[in-house]
Nucleic acid binder design. Structure first.
Length: 332
RNA sequence: GCCGAGGUAGCUCAGUUGGCAGAGCACAGCCCUGAAAAGGCUGGUGUCGACAGUUCGAUUCUGUCCCUCGGCA
């Protein structure tokens, strides 16, 4: 960090009393709403880092397709919780939480406001409301359950779940392979139903004093931005990035390569659809994803929503966010 | 102007031997506790081009008109 005369650069650090309350500011919103640009401005103002909450930006080498901010866009602001692992390594909400808690802790020790920005609802929730103590995924067990689902059908697994954990079964749809498998996995690992962990935890932790800000735009405008961004990515080497990852041996079935865009691009590169169809699916699936994100965040309690108008600059939106944060800090 | 074909959901179309219409895509809503950019669920009233006639009843039959697309002039 450069040594700058404090008269020119105010350093709004937290007081000891504020730090003790463990404040946390989180900016959420659908993909392409403009979170990253705003976050950099906000981070500059508070002289803090940007902590991303993005399940895809954690992978090294997946840059363009995950809309990872380029170095120039970061404007000297450290971005953390990016590039944490390789695309063939398992990553999950629990690992994210561990990394994030550590980063937040460091910022608190420096008496700075931790600023989390991201679109992965579950990851944000693990910070804001904690994560239950159920055992983490165990690759061997999971692989076996997946194979079984493929061979005999998910319904059979669902039926088994209904006998060992009727509570979970009643909450899941028999076709929801991912969650049925996870529930069976937990039961196999520790003999306890995952529903027991969920019930006792109930997202009841409150490790931080949190301010949640949601950014949104008019739906049509958001969709236009999504499509424009995808066109830009395709014009700037997204297919090359995908080809490079495939060439390095990352399989199409891996969690990382099943991400938006990579999946469609890999299908196209394998000759399974033409270019126009690939673009169509990439855009459509991204629109649908943005919708799911909004459903999730709408349900998250206490989100303060800010609607961004087409004519608003990132600086303007950042100004509105900073106002909310100032109010929040003043109330601590 | 004449001859064809057609006008049904945002789009492409199916259909009703006359009984208040249905698929795909698009879209909308929802669920989610270590795969979460993943995974799953739900949703179709639309002047069936307009008007008139026949009929108990017309989107379906008849007539006129309007529009679209071909072909011929």
């Amino acid at each position: 960090m450069d040594v700058t005369p404090t008269a020119l650069l105010p350093m709004p650090t937290l007081t000891e009393a504020q730090v003790r309350l463990k404040p946390l500011v989180v900016i959420v919103g659908p993909t392409a709403v403009g979170k990253s640009r705003v976050a950099v401005e906000v981070a500059k103002h508070f002289n803090t880092d940007v902590l991303t909450a993005d399940s895809r930006q954690v992978y090294c080498g997946m840059d363009l397709g995950t809309d990872k901010p380029a170095l120039s866009e970061r404007q000297g602001i450290p971005h953390r919780l990016i590039d944490l692992t390789q695309p063939d390594e398992p990553f999950n909400a629990g690992l994210y939480r561990r990394h994030a808690v550590e980063a937040i802790d460091q910022l608190h020790r420096a008496r700075l406001v931790p600023l989390v920005v991201g679109g992965t609802g579950l990851y944000v929730r693990t910070l804001v409301r904690g994560l239950c103590e159920a055992p983490p995924a165990q690759p061997a067990i999971r692989a076996r359950l997946q194979a079984e689902a493929r061979e005999v059908g998910v319904e059979r697994l669902y039926h088994r779940l209904a006998s060992v954990d009727p509570v979970s079964a009643s909450k899941l749809h028999p076709h929801d392979a991912a969650k049925v498998i996870r529930a069976l996995e937990v039961h196999q690992l520790c003999g306890k139903p995952i529903s027991a962990f969920h019930t006792s935890h109930a997202f009841g932790d409150q490790p931080y004093r949190t301010l949640l800000i949601g950014l949104d735009r008019n739906r049509e405008a958001l969709y236009r931005r999504i499509e424009a961004r995808i066109d830009w990515q395709l014009d700037h080497g997204f297919l090359d990035e995908t080809a490079r990852l495939l060439a390095r041996g990352y399989r199409r079935e891996s969690a990382a390569m099943k991400g938006l865009g990579y999946r469609q691009a890999a299908d196209y590169l394998a000759g399974e659809c033409d270019y126009a169809e690939m673009v169509r699916r990439f855009k459509r699936d991204t629109r649908r994803f943005a919708k799911r994100q909004l459903t999730w965040f709408r349900r998250e309690p206490a989100v303060q929503w800010l609607e961004i108008a087409e004519s608003d600059s990132p600086e303007h939106t950042a100004g509105r966010v900073i106002e909310r944060i100032d109010l929040f800090l003043a109330g601590l």
